[in-house]
Design a protein around this nucleic acid. Structure first.
Lengths: 338, 338
DNA sequence: CAAGTTTGGCGAAACGGTTTGCTGGACGAG
DNA sequence: CTCGTCCAGCAAACCGTTTCGCCAAACTTG
C-alpha cells in the first residue's frame, strides 16, 4: 500500500504538497499538481482514511441504534437512513439494542469508542440508561428518534402519537363504534403511551371510555398481540372495533381473526397506527395512520449533520411530524350489538 | 479528552506501560498497574480507537453491501449480520447498492477507504463491476452472499436455487398440476436463473415444459409481479399453478388475485421461494421454500472472521445451503381444466 | 563475590496523514 | 540598484496509539 510519502518521493515534492493537492487546501502550481496526480495514478495511491481521521478527529461514521431490527418498521428506518447518510457523505453503522437497556448502553459506549461523529438513537426508553449517560463525558451529537425520553440535551424527531391515536379513534367513532378496544405497546414507551392517550382523549371528548379489559398490552409483538386478540374476541363481551398500536401487532390480530374464522370488516373493525411495508397488497387493506419515515429520517440526519459539520451548538430542537390517516377496508360501520 | 500521555503523566509511568496495562501485552507489576488503573479512572480516559486502528491497521468494521435494502429479505440479513458481527466483536457498516452496479462499485471503493476489515457482498451481479474489481489492489477479504458471480477469489455462501425450484415444482406436480407458470427474477442473477432452471428440470424430468408465455420475469419486484400476474391470469390460457421466485413478488401476485376476485388455493395454486417475515400470519399461508438466513449469515461471518483474525489464506470456499419446503395452504390439487 | 541471566519499565520510533511556520526566489516600487 | 512584498513549496511538528530495542536493577549460579 503506497503512502503519501511514496507519492511525494515519486513526484519529487514534499508530503505537504501532495496533501495540498489532495485536499485543495493550498494553491499548487499546475505543473507540480500534474506531477503529483501522475504519481498518485502511477502508484494507485489511496489516502488512508484512518490516518486522515486520526488527524482530523472525525470518522465520517454515523451510528444508528434501533430498538428492534427485526421489526420492519425499523428496517425501513435503516433503509432511509442509509440513503440519507450516504447523501451527506457519511457511512452508517447499524446497531440493534433489541429493546434491552443494557445492550443500548453497551452500544452507545461502543459508538463512542468507534468515535462516530453522530448517533441516531431509537431509545429503548428506560430511564436508567440515560442517568448513566448523563455522567459520561459529552460525546457525539445525538438525535433521539421516534421515542422520547427525559433527555434534555439531544434533538428529537418524533411523530405526534396522540394525534395518531385520536385520528384513528375518531374515525372509528364516526363509523358508529362505541365499544372500541385497543392493543397497546409497552406503556413506558411514549409511542405506546401517546397513542393510547390519544385514543382515550378522542373517546372522552364524546363522553366515552373503553370498557375495562378492552385495553390490553400487546408488547408491540406479533405473537403477543395474537394471543391478546384471541382472548379479547373469544371473551363474552368483545369490542366491535380494535385500535392496534403498531403494524406487526395488527398482523397478529389479523392472524387471530383468521384462526377464529372471523372476517375483518364484518366481525371486527380493525385499525392501527403504523403498518408493514409490502403488506399493502393484502386484503383487507388496513386502515391506519402512517408515519413519514423518509422525511423523519432525513430531518434527523439534517439535524445531526448540522451539529457535526456546521458546529451548530444551540439548544436541542424537537421536531414532531404529523401522522396521516390512510383508509383501507378493514373498518366498517357499527352494525348493532353483537 | 484525555490521552494516554495524560494518563502516563498522572500515574508517573511511561505511555508504554499504560498501553501494556490496557492490552495485557506485557507483565506490569501490581502496584504500577494499580496506579495506572487509578489514573485511567480518574481522568475517565478512553483510548482512541482511531489512533489504535491507525497503528494496528485494523478497523474492526465489517461492511455489508446488500442489493436492495428495501426488500425484507435483505432486512433480515442485516438483522442477522448485525448480531453475528457483534458477537465477533466487530461493528457493521451497512450499504445499499440498490441493484445498481455503479453504486456497488462506489460502495466497494468506499468500504476500502473506510478500511473495513471485511466485506459481505450481495452482488448486483453484473460482471462489469467485477472485471474492474480484479484490477484493484487486493483489498479486504470478501464473502459473496446469496448470488454468485464469476469471481474466483472470494468465498461464497449461497442456497441451492435449483433445488428450491425443483422442490416447489415437484410439489405442484405431485398435486396434479401440469400447466405451471413462473414469475422469475432478472435472469442474470443466479438466484433467479437457478430457481427457474430447477423448475424446468423438475418438469422435464416428467416430460413436461411450461407453456410459452407462462414464464415471465417479475424483476423480483412487487409491482411488476402484480402486473405480470394480472396479465397471466386474465389471458385466455392461464396456468393452474404459479411458481413465484421470491417473497415480495408472491405478495404482488396475491394482490393481483384479490383484485381479480380470485381465491388462492381454489383458482390458482401459488408457491414461492423465499417469503416475507411477519406475513406468516396471513391466510392462506404461502407454500414456499425458506432459506436458513441465520445460518447462512453466521457462516458468512465465520468465514470472514477466519480470514481476518486467523489470517486464513486458503483457496476460496463455497458453501451451499439447502432450502426447506414449507407447506402452507396456498396450493390445492389440480381440479380439472379451467 | 563476580559473572551471567532474567525482567519490569522506559524512551523513541513508527503508523500515515494534516498543518503550521518558514524559506528563498521572483517581482514591483521607489 | 536596493529594499520590501508575496507566495509556492518545504521541513517538521503533531494526532494518540503500539511496539521494538534497550537499560539497569534484581536474581541466580558457580
Amino acid at each position: 500500500m503506497a503512502t503519501i510519502r511514496d507519492v511525494a518521493a515519486a513526484a519529487g515534492v514534499s508530503t505537504a504538497t501532495v496533501s495540498a493537492v489532495l485536499n485543495d487546501s493550498a494553491y499548487v502550481s499546475p505543473q507540480l499538481r500534474g506531477r503529483v496526480l501522475a504519481a498518485i495514478e502511477d502508484l494507485s495511491y489511496t489516502p488512508s482514511m484512518m490516518a486522515r481521521r486520526l488527524k482530523k478527529g472525525r470518522s465520517h461514521l454515523i451510528a444508528l441504534v434501533v430498538a428492534d431490527l427485526a421489526n420492519p418498521f425499523f428496517s425501513r428506518i435503516v433503509c432511509a437512513a442509509e440513503a440519507a447518510v450516504a447523501a451527506w457523505g457519511y457511512s452508517l453503522v447499524v446497531f440493534n439494542s433489541d429493546e434491552k437497556p443494557e445492550s443500548e448502553k453497551r452500544i452507545l459506549a461502543r459508538a463512542k469508542l468507534l468515535s462516530c461523529d453522530g448517533v441516531v438513537l431509537v431509545p429503548v426508553g428506560l430511564p436508567s440508561t440515560y442517568a448513566q449517560r448523563e455522567s459520561d463525558a459529552p460525546s457525539a451529537p445525538m438525535v433521539l428518534f421516534g421515542r422520547v425520553v427525559d433527555d434534555n440535551r439531544s434533538d428529537t424527531v418524533t411523530i405526534d402519537n396522540e394525534a395518531a391515536g385520536r385520528q384513528v379513534t375518531n374515525y372509528l367513532l364516526d363509523l358508529g363504534h362505541r365499544r372500541i378496544g385497543s392493543i397497546t405497546g409497552p406503556l413506558h414507551l411514549t409511542t405506546a403511551k401517546g397513542r393510547l392517550d390519544g385514543m382515550l382523549q378522542a373517546m372522552s371528548a364524546r363522553g366515552l371510555a373503553p370498557e375495562p379489559g378492552h385495553v390490553r398490552s400487546g408488547e408491540f409483538r406479533e405473537d403477543v398481540a395474537y394471543s391478546v386478540a384471541r382472548e379479547l374476541l373469544e371473551g363474552r363481551n368483545p369490542p366491535s372495533a380494535l385500535y392496534v398500536a403498531n403494524g406487526v401487532m395488527a398482523l397478529g390480530v389479523m392472524r387471530a381473526l383468521a384462526d377464529l374464522g372471523l372476517k375483518c370488516p364484518d366481525d371486527l373493525s380493525l385499525a392501527s397506527t403504523d403498518t408493514i411495508p409490502g403488506i399493502g397488497g393484502l386484503r383487507p387493506r388496513l386502515t391506519r395512520t402512517e408515519h413519514p419515515i423518509l422525511e423523519m429520517t432525513n430531518e434527523a440526519l439534517r439535524m445531526l449533520v448540522n451539529r457535526i459539520d456546521r458546529g451548530v451548538d444551540g439548544p436541542p430542537r424537537h421536531v414532531v411530524f404529523p401522522p396521516t390517516l390512510v383508509v383501507g377496508e378493514s373498518c366498517g360501520p357499527y352494525s348493532g350489538p353483537k
